[in-house]
């Protein structure tokens, strides 16, 4: 493989490996690496295949360069998240599941005691529109306002019953 062909192949692999980076950072990184290669070759004073091969070997694999970028995190890249967030604006906030959940938690709590709110909370957890944090907070609200006082009363009843017998 010729020297320039080796460099092109390396840069191609770097571009392919750097997909998780934001486009501007990706171009910047490729530019930096290209410049580094040219500087190293200028310092070596030769541009044959063996010198290029040695320079590229010292740089490391393109995948390693990309993964050593501090802001690369596992999962989809942040700029993809930002685009998804923009797209999410066009998705209606309320789906059938969310409406049913809120109805069961409000009207259902009055018309179908216990069953309504329980099913409502199940629907809340099935929904993808609320974050896990919001689902946890909603569940905690129900537990704190309803379950804890009821448990407290049951405990009081239990001790009252035990002391009266």
């Amino acid at each position: 493989m010729e020297a320039d062909e080796l460099i092109r192949d390396y840069i191609g692999r770097l571009e392919a490996a750097s997909w998780p980076l934001p486009p501007d950072r990706r171009a910047e990184l490729v530019g930096e690496v290209r410049e580094h290669i040219e500087t190293a070759l200028a310092e070596a004073g030769r541009r044959d295949a063996v010198t290029v091969h040695n320079v590229l070997e010292r740089l490391g694999r393109p995948e390693e360069i990309v993964s050593s970028e501090a802001d690369v995190e596992p999962g989809p890249p942040r700029w993809v998240d930002a685009r998804l967030a923009d797209a999410a604006v066009s998705i209606p906030a309320w789906g059938g599941l969310e409406i049913a959940a809120v109805l069961l938690l409000t009207v259902g709590a009055v018309l179908l005691p216990l069953f309504g709110p329980a099913l409502g909370l199940v629907l809340v957890w099935l929904s993808t529109r609320w974050t896990t944090r919001e689902k946890v907070i909603a569940s905690v609200i129900v537990v704190v306002i309803f379950v804890l006082p009821v448990l407290g009363l049951l405990a009081v009843d239990g001790t009252a019953g035990a002391s009266s017998s």
């Binding site: 906030a93 938690l105 409000t106 709110p117 409502g120 919001e134 907070i137 909603a138 009821v150 009363l153």
Partner: peptide
């Protein structure tokens, strides 16, 4: 155990949770 208390507390708890969820969705839309 006062059954009336359950009748009051349960809807109250569920409605409070529902209000929180509605507000959470509404805030995200803004």
């Amino acid at each position: 155990m006062d059954i009336d208390l359950i009748r009051v507390l349960l809807p109250l708890a569920a409605i409070a949770a529902a209000i929180f969820l509605v507000v959470a969705l509404a805030r995200r839309r803004r």
